[in-house]
Design a protein around this nucleic acid. Structure first.
Length: 451
RNA sequence: GCGACGGUAGCUCAGCUGGUAGAGCCCUCGGUUGUGGUCCGAGUGGUCGUGGGUUCGAGUCCCAUCCGUCGCCCCA
């Protein structure tokens, strides 16, 4: 019989146990951070009805959706009724609309689950990946201070993750669209076009962007393009940028509105204690965030600038307008945990050789002593030490090899000699240190290895 | 959907101008009785992505096709 090549489909992240443990540790860190700020957990099903999922579908969205088809429906040639979620925001909207009467508002939820996108897998771009979202949903209104809280949470979490320096980029769509409109780019599709070009600033440079703005479909005049680049491309000290932008406030009401919002967010961020070096204004981030209506965020790792955003989000005026007549404004942010983890591993920022979950292996030297081994394991477990007993008789070399492979740092060895003396031999694999101790002192001796 | 590059052992790859396949790693076993990792020795493992063509002969050249990687597009 021909064997089928065992191979994961492209664009997924599947890990060996040690890496899985490291990944779970990362998720735990994120979860702890979210809970520290008082967010409550929610999970939603991996698929939703097509109706729910494709409400805001532009053509691109639909192309990236995996449809779920039961065999029966397939045979009857029916259209799929279900599809896999491509983010956690749409399910959240449905969730909030559905359970509106049972929730406390402002509703602060976190959600850490996998999402699915049918796009070509690339470096840092997965077809199945984890998103770790927080959102705050208000009823009728939601103060801007929540916009300032989001980056505060992110700064806290990324700090705990120990991923090195990072920068939370802030922008505001009102400001951005106001500037574009004032510059003569008023039509939404032209705005989108211009934003897409502006996003390439870092990659292709200012001149190339200016050229494509003039010669491409955007069709700007050269000096208009240059002016726009001057306005949007400025970087540096947050207050200085804000001050420069304020001189443009009277050109369009949206500019003034956006600036007021940004101002509030920046002040809030500082009050939350986010260091100045961890955030900055960046008027060119806007791509792919087109359903946001105010504040937008994108976070980059300083060590991996090419990676793209590892955490993005923003403010939306009315989250669930497709599902309820209630007005539910929100603000949220999402960490792309799979991308983040994969990148950290590649960059060697992750201690990949992390320990396993099991701390001690009780070996089986003499099958006649099996019950004594069980008792030893029970004593260790009662002391809170993760312990495995070797149940299969095997040469001792094999058992040690197993412990080494499985990442179990300490083994208990007890043959008839030790047993007769009421003792066990403990061995710490990494150091090779081995010592015999009375069974009464075993727990303390094991703990000593971990210190 | 477009473009570039690539498919040889489980993994990473070598194989020069065509003469019927190799290394390292991994894995298994051994190096005597109760010691892994290190070291030494041995072994398993490939119809060279697939289908055609050129040739006495193709991993090697040509065509097609599939798959993959990277980039573009797009990215909630």
């Amino acid at each position: 019989m021909a064997l089928i090549t065992p191979k994961t489909p492209p664009g997924v992240m599947e890990l060996l146990p040690r890496q899985q443990i490291a990944f779970q540790t990362m998720l735990d860190t994120i979860r702890r951070g979210y809970e520290r700020f008082g967010f409550v957990p929610v999970e939603t099903p991996v698929f939703e009805s097509v109706d729910v999922l494709l409400t805001k579908s532009g053509g691109e969205t639909e192309k990236q959706v995996y449809f779920v088809q039961s065999t029966g429906a397939l045979q009857q040639n029916r259209k799929p009724e279900l599809a896999l979620r491509f983010d956690l925001t749409v399910p959240l909207a449905r969730y909030v609309a559905e359970h509106e009467r049972d929730l406390a508002f402002p509703f602060r939820r976190y959600q850490m689950q996998r999402v699915y996108r049918g796009e070509r897998a690339q470096k840092g771009r997965f077809r199945e990946f984890y998103q770790c979202d927080i959102d705050v949903i208000g009823k009728d209104s939601l103060p801007l201070h929540y916009d300032a809280e989001m980056p505060a949470v992110i700064a806290h979490v990324f700090n705990d993750l120990k991923v090195g320096d990072f920068t939370i980029n802030l922008n505001n769509r009102k400001l951005l669209l106001g500037l574009l409109t004032a510059a003569g780019v008023a039509a939404p599709d032209r705005q989108a076009l211009v934003l897409r070009e502006l996003d390439k600033l870092d990659k292709v440079g200012r001149d190339a962007v200016a050229t494509s703005l003039c010669e491409g479909e955007a069709g700007l005049e050269r000096d208009a393009a240059e002016r726009l680049l001057d306005q949007l491309g400025q970087a540096g000290d947050t207050d200085a940028v804000l001050a420069r932008l304020r001189t443009l406030a009277d050109r369009h009401p949206e500019i003034a509105a956006g600036l007021t919002e940004l101002d509030t967010v920046v002040r809030g961020l500082r009050a939350f204690g986010v260091p100045e070096a961890r955030f900055g204004l960046n008027l060119t981030i806007a791509r792919g965030l087109d359903y946001y209506t105010g504040t937008v965020y994108e976070t980059f790792l300083d060590a991996c600038p090419g990676l793209g955003s590892v955490c993005s989000g923003g403010r939306y005026d009315n989250l669930a307008s497709h599902y309820t007549k209630s007005r539910l404004p929100g603000v949220g942010i999402s960490i792309g945990a799979t991308r983040l983890f994969a990148q950290l591993q590649e960059a060697g920022l992750m201690d990949a050789a992390g320990a396993g979950t099991c701390q001690v292996l009780v070996t089986q030297m003499d099958p006649a002593l099996l019950e004594a081994y069980f008792q030893i394991a029970t004593v260790l477990r009662s002391a809170g030490i993760n312990t495995e007993v070797q149940l299969e008789a095997a040469k001792i070399g094999r058992q040690l090899k197993y412990a080494d492979r499985a990442g179990i740092p300490v083994v208990v060895l007890m043959g008839t000699d030790e047993h007769a003396r009421g003792a066990v031999t403990l061995k710490h694999l990494a150091s090779g240190i081995q010592r015999e101790v009375p069974r009464a002192e075993m727990v303390a001796a094991v703990r000593a290895f971990f210190d």
